[in-house]
Amino acid sequence: MERRKYREKHKEYIAEGVRILYDALENKQTIKSAVFCDALYRTAGGESLLTRLVDQGIRVYHIPEKLYAEIADTESPQGIMAVLPRIQINLGQLLKKENGLYILLDRVQDPGNLGTIIRTADAAGVDAVLLTKGCVDVYNPKTIRSTMGSIFHLPILILEDQQEAQDFFKSNQIRILTTSLSAKCYHYEIDYRQAAAIVVGNEANGVSDLWMEAADDLVKIPILGKAESLNVSTAASIMLYEAVRQRME
């Protein structure tokens, strides 16, 4: 929580590891500075990364292994991390495609789930990911690692006003499709070929009443065994790829 407070205060976050920083560079992300530990970095196989950072004029600080280990978030650190600015966007900046596809996460708590959903949304061609207040911090180091670079590929918006988001969807004819165990329709019975926002909810409590009441359709995923529910990232994946299937026909 202490780290989240400082991320929010300074509007910055840390990305750690060779692959994620390569992804940041390839996607033309701004890197403000980097921290480097020679003893750890040599084992990571990313010798050209440091050169690229320096060649781009990014300030790199060399620190000893003991200090790096204290600030690293991973169990097997690769010896390099960087500070990036948070990207600030608002609803008006979202692409308003004729058949746009969005996913809204309502109070999702697990950073691994959040990162997996962002990665799946990226693969499925989603136009934006929207997060309600109460979601785990999207800039949590575990979340960033779980996205496998997808955090750099698509807009991610943290909602300050959920009613504003609902009004945005309604005014742009974007249907709100909300998951609910009590729904009468299965997820594959809904038409995803028009503009749609898929809403998935908290791991323990599901989607809030606010989004249930705003939904144009409530949908459920068949559960044939004895499990009470699906993991939220699994549910999101199933619905997103049903949209992909329909849109590819």
Rank of each mutant, 00 (worst) to 15 (best):
Y41P: 03
T30R: 11
T147F: 15
S48I: 05
R86L: 10
P222R: 12
S33Y: 05
A243P: 03
L40D: 01
G92H: 10
F168P: 03
R145C: 10
T116R: 03
N205P: 04
A195Q: 01
E16Y: 09
L91Q: 12
A39S: 07
Y13F: 13
I174W: 11
K66S: 04
P155Q: 07
M81P: 03
E189S: 09
N140T: 04
A197S: 13
T178P: 00
E12I: 10
K66L: 02
A196I: 08
L84S: 06
N140R: 05
Y192V: 04
Y241R: 05
E8N: 00
V199Q: 09
T120F: 15
I89K: 01
H62Q: 06
P111Y: 01
T51M: 15
V200E: 02
L159D: 15
R245I: 15
M81K: 04
I174A: 13
N113E: 09
Q246S: 00
R145M: 11
T116F: 08
N27G: 11
S171A: 13
I63L: 07
Y41H: 13
D217Q: 12
S208I: 11
C135I: 09
E65H: 02
L101A: 00
E189R: 10
D167E: 11
N99D: 10
D106E: 03
H153T: 10
L21T: 07
E242D: 08
M212T: 15
I87H: 10
Y139V: 00
E65D: 05
Q88H: 15
E65S: 09
S171K: 15
Y61N: 05
S233A: 15
Y68H: 06
L130N: 06
E228Q: 14
A69F: 00
E98C: 02
R42K: 11
L159Q: 13
H10A: 13
R52V: 11
V35A: 07
L84K: 09
D209S: 09
Q163N: 10
D38E: 12
G46P: 01
L177P: 08
A165V: 14
E8F: 06
A197Y: 12
V54T: 08
A124N: 03
S171R: 14
R245M: 10
R119A: 14
E2Q: 00
E242P: 07
I221Q: 07
A124G: 00
E12K: 08
C37L: 01
Q246G: 00
I156T: 15
M1S: 14
A121L: 07
A196E: 13
M148N: 04
A183Q: 08
G112H: 12
D55A: 03
G225D: 07
S48C: 02
P77S: 01
I144A: 14
D122T: 04
S171L: 13
I221D: 12
A183L: 02
L95T: 15
G134S: 05
S180A: 05
M212C: 11
A82E: 08
V35E: 06
I31G: 14
N140K: 06
L95K: 15
F36M: 09
P85F: 07
A243S: 11
S229F: 14
T234V: 05
D110S: 14
R86Y: 04
A69L: 02
S229R: 14
L114Q: 05
E2K: 03
E47Y: 04
A123M: 08
K184I: 09
Y22I: 08
Q162H: 15
R107T: 08
L218S: 12
R42H: 05
K5C: 04
A195D: 07
G79E: 13
G79Q: 12
K170C: 09
T178Y: 00
I238K: 13
